[in-house]
Design a protein around this nucleic acid. Structure first.
Lengths: 135, 135
DNA sequence: CTTTATGTATCTATACCGGTTACATATTTC
DNA sequence: GAAATATGTAACCGGTATAGATACATAAAG
């Protein structure tokens, strides 16, 4: 049902920063842990920076460090930072005005999906990055 | 977070069948309500048929009809029928064996995501197609 | 036998995902 | 001040998924 892995990668990235306990970490190092390239990691780190989860330091001897306590950064925080809070998509085909079912369907689906997403959201708020770290 | 709209379309399709109260409905008619083409609708109806939610009748004067009570067909039933029960994806990059965080990350993420999916699933089981129909 | 439905394969345009390169900008270091 | 090296971000690319469209074999009714 899902397409991209950005939430997973974001969580991985933050976990790496958390494991360094506030030290400055370079995107290249993080990329090594995720096993991807540094530019992709920076793209995600950029969203996290704008969300105030991470601080970026420019220039030589730059890098990234966590701003918040890893125990207080939840999966939901990351989803919001990435702008990916929706779990379902409704088709965009225009409703058929001749069909009563079609007329109300997209609104009904929107409400139904919102209920499910709300339940998921509640759970995501209960899972912090700290729980992803090795014991 | 989601890419495809098959669950939404499947729900729409079943709602149309439900509104016809067990009568046989042609894929072409359903396609008119969803505002898409009949082959796409049949592709989804095929999954629903295999899942026992719908019965297909071949040949001239063929069509589709609901097998189950619309009040007993849930969003979760449809997701299972479509083989789309996962909401999140973990990146497939191999773990970096030198990094303790990386070593455990994919398992940790799998567990975390499963918890969220379970919450979503519980909610999806509580929403039936009947609730999507106009009052 | 003709008509007309489903089942399914194939083709296509579009979009997205993630990898990659490149380079402007910022900041430390010398 | 100049060199070195980090982030920020745009641009491009190949792979893949989505959904639309056509086509046709198969099945059943008339």
């Amino acid at each position: 049902m899902i397409s991209n892995t950005r939430l997973a990668v974001a969580a991985h990235i933050v976990a790496v920063l958390a494991s360094k306990k506030g030290e400055s970490v370079k995107s290249r190092y993080v990329a090594g842990s995720v096993n991807t390239n540094a530019a992709f990691v920076r793209r995600i780190l950029c969203s996290l920076t704008k969300a105030g989860i991470v601080r970026a330091e420019m220039g030589k001897s730059g890098g990234f460090k966590l701003v918040k306590d890893p125990g207080k950064i939840t999966l939901w925080d990351l989803s919001v930072a990435l702008g990916e809070e929706r779990l379902f998509a409704v088709h965009k085909n225009p409703a058929n005005p001749c069909c009563p079912v079609s007329r109300g369907m997209k609104e009904s689906l929107g409400r139904a999906f919102s209920r499910v997403e709300k339940a998921a959201q509640a759970q995501m708020k209960r899972i912090s990055v700290k729980e992803l770290l090795p014991a």
